[in-house]
Amino acid sequence: MELGDLVRMARQIRRDIVTITHVAGSGHPGGSLSSADFVTALYFHKLRHRPEDPHWEGRDRVIFSKGHVAPVLYAALARSGYFPVADLNGLRRLGSHLQGHPCTCTPGVEVGTGSLGQGLSVAVGMAMAAKLDGRPNLFYCVNGDGELQEGQIWEALMAAGHYRLDNLLTFIDYNNLQIDGEVEKVMGVAPLADKLRAFRWEVVGVDGHDMSALVAALDAFPRNDGKPTAIIGRTVKGKGVSFMENIAGWHGKAPNDEQYAQAMRELADPEV
């Protein structure tokens, strides 16, 4: 997909996020919007996958360790063709395959996540298995910055460095907000890049809303240098919807009718 198309797709995915959390009446728009550009670049530019054949052996794997951003994941899967876009309206409803947090009942979801800090370990294990068998698949993970407070994350980071998993990339959605406030005030994770490097990771810092920078960072992977890659994406929680931006309260709250209408106006494609 061309850069302009990726930007348009990211906007579409943002509209989907706002729409489906509005329809569901609950959900997590804040972190979904902050990671939307990376997720778009990953699914529509980089990932080797076959949405019509979700179990294709040769596919790259994506693990959403920050499982609460299910809206952005579901939007990306639907827009990729894993299931009809209309299914998105079932988000969080009884009987729907779109659970509040990711579940393997959804085509394209590799493993259930939602209890923070666990997904990176799964991606590490997958990357190890591929190394063991000499398989060329690549492994992607999406982590939150607040999530890095979980001890298991550092166990996983240590293991990835130890096992030299250069087939593994994680994107850290560094929006500096978590439910209780600013990450640095709640339980600081800085200096993040130094910490990751000390754990034997290759670290790339990007503006997490700059599509060309995200594409370039993804294109540089894999480096085949024996190091796992972390992209630290400087992001804005709620990005793209003015009244949600940088407000921790939009972590897990759905827009009402009026807010929805305004958000959709702000996320409309510009007139050509």
């Binding site: 794997r61 590799e110 493993v111 800090g117 666990q118 997904g119 990176l120 370990s121 799964v122 991606a123 590490v124 294990g125 997958m126 990357a127 190890m128 298995a129 591929a130 063991l132 068998d133 398989r135 001890g151 298991q152 166990e155 996983a156 240590m158 293991a159």
Partner: peptide, 22 residues
């Protein structure tokens, strides 16, 4: 694979391995 003294990650790594057919 020795996971070191890090059981939670060990379970996660095992989960990942199982997803690739191990």
């Amino acid at each position: 694979f020795d996971a070191g003294i890090a059981e939670q990650n060990m379970l996660g790594m095992a989960a990942g391995m199982s997803l690739l057919g191990k």
